[in-house]
Simulated assay, not measured.
Amino acid sequence: MKLSNLSIKRPIGLIMIVLGILALGFVSLRNLTIDLFPEIDLPVAAITTTYSGAGPQEVEQLVTRPLESALSSLQGIDTIQSTSQPNASLIILLFQNGTNLDNALLEVRERVDQVKGMLPDNAGDPSVMRFDPQQTPIMALGLAGTDLSRLENVAETQVIPYLERVDHVASVTTMGGLTREIQLVLDQAQLRQYGLSAGQIAQALQAENRSASAGVVSKGSQEQQIRINGEFTSLRDIASTLIPLPAGGHITVADIAEINDTFADESTITQVNDEPGLILSVMKQSGGNTVEVAERVGKAIGQIQERLPEGIELTVVMDMSIFIRSSIDSVLQNLIIGGGMAVLILLLFLRSIRPVMVKI
């Protein structure tokens, strides 16, 4: 039986089938994740290793080459690219298409663990990462104000905690701004007089600046853990730290050093709307809808701005959802234009509206 005859004889059944297909399509459309790029798994892995105080040649000979030798025999590797720079080594592994990246990363970690013991003592543990194009910021926010020293504290205490509570926001990172730093300017003459070195001062400070467990106390039927908070909370704590002398006795840090509460040297300068500021990068959770997350963050920005101190402004610098909305609008516009052109062409050839409606 032809479809046209079946449609004429069973119109109600055909209408129900069409309505069922439309309902299924509507539900699927609502649950469809909207993103700028499709979810793909690129066969790329990266191994990063830090080596503080080393030049590019030392990094290449002592870190990069041992790791390359261990990784070059892995199955499925297409290309190995390495970069040795001061204080760091970067190795990028390009696998052949079709390689199971999960299994490949397990083998990479096993090879790295075998070589890790051969690396210099000052080198950090190699970090194995996979390249995921989804792990890119969906929004960049600018926090600007005249007092740059306040921005870092405002971002960490007010802005970031609020944004990370937004649904499907994974994390928020900062770039720029001033980072507080406590500097100790040692008196070299005093160090020579007491027979001390800078390393001994650093060890004494590290030993004092830590918390520890002091055991368990029984209270009725319960056991409570006792914790001693020994971390520094003020400059006075640092100044009064005792330094043991080789000949016996103790001195304090204030006797041999000048303590400065300042900021770390700026390696980058960030400006937002021609004012000093810092950038907040918003990352969404895997599988999240970029457009919906951006809309929720936009609403949160208005609520945060009401709580910020006077003179500090939070604005949107970059929004990936704008490009997604533009792409969707372009598709809808082309769909409408294409449908209209098809109707006009049918009307031109058929010269009657009734057969055109039947064709549609």
Rank of each mutant, 00 (worst) to 15 (best):
K2W: 08
I15S: 14
L24I: 14
F26I: 12
R30T: 09
R30N: 10
D41Q: 14
T48F: 07
T50F: 13
Y51S: 05
S52Y: 09
Q61D: 15
R65T: 10
P66R: 08
L74D: 03
I77R: 06
I77L: 14
L101E: 04
N103I: 06
D113F: 02
L151E: 00
L151D: 00
E152V: 03
A155G: 03
V159R: 00
I160N: 01
I160G: 02
V169T: 07
A170E: 14
I182T: 15
L184R: 02
L186W: 02
D187Q: 10
Q190G: 05
L191R: 07
Q203Y: 08
E208S: 13
A212R: 13
S213R: 11
K219R: 11
E231Y: 07
I238K: 03
L245D: 07
D255V: 00
I256S: 02
A257L: 04
N260I: 13
A264Y: 04
G277A: 04
M283S: 10
G287D: 08
E295A: 15
G302A: 06
P309T: 09
E313M: 07
L314K: 01
D319Q: 03
D319I: 05
F323K: 08
I324T: 13
L332D: 04
N334W: 05
G338I: 03
F349A: 02
S352I: 02
P355A: 12
